[in-house]
Amino acid sequence: MIRKSEQLPLVFKHEPQRGRDDLMVSERLKAAVAIIDSWPRWPSPVVILAGPVGSGKSHLASIWRENSGAVDIRPTRTGDAAELAAQGPVLFEDADRQGFDDQALFHVINSVRENGTGLLITSRLWPMSWPVELPDLRSRLKAATTVEMGEPDDELLAQVLVKLLADRQLAVDDRLVGYIVARMERSLEAAQTVVERLDHLALARGTRINRVLAAEVLNSLGKTRETD
Rank of each mutant, 00 (worst) to 15 (best):
S139Y: 05
A70Y: 14
T76A: 10
S187L: 02
V47N: 02
T145V: 13
S5Q: 14
T122K: 00
G99M: 06
A182N: 12
G118D: 04
A86H: 01
Q87K: 13
V177W: 02
T227S: 05
R208C: 04
R113M: 14
L8P: 05
V195M: 00
E189F: 05
E114H: 03
V177G: 06
Q87S: 08
A190M: 01
T146V: 15
E27T: 11
T224A: 11
S68L: 00
V195E: 00
A61E: 09
I73G: 06
A166M: 08
D167K: 09
D72V: 04
E15W: 12
A214M: 07
V90P: 06
E226S: 09
L157Y: 03
S68E: 02
D228C: 04
L213W: 01
G51Y: 10
W64P: 12
P16G: 03
A144D: 12
G206R: 10
L120N: 14
V172L: 15
K223F: 01
R205T: 09
V53H: 14
L201F: 11
G99A: 04
H107P: 03
I209E: 06
A82M: 09
D136Y: 02
V47T: 14
Q169I: 04
D136P: 01
R183F: 03
L8R: 10
A143K: 04
I36A: 15
A61N: 12
A81H: 10
V217W: 02
R211W: 04
E151K: 15
D153S: 06
I63H: 02
T227N: 02
F100R: 07
Q17G: 08
R74V: 08
P127H: 02
A158M: 06
P45D: 12
V71C: 11
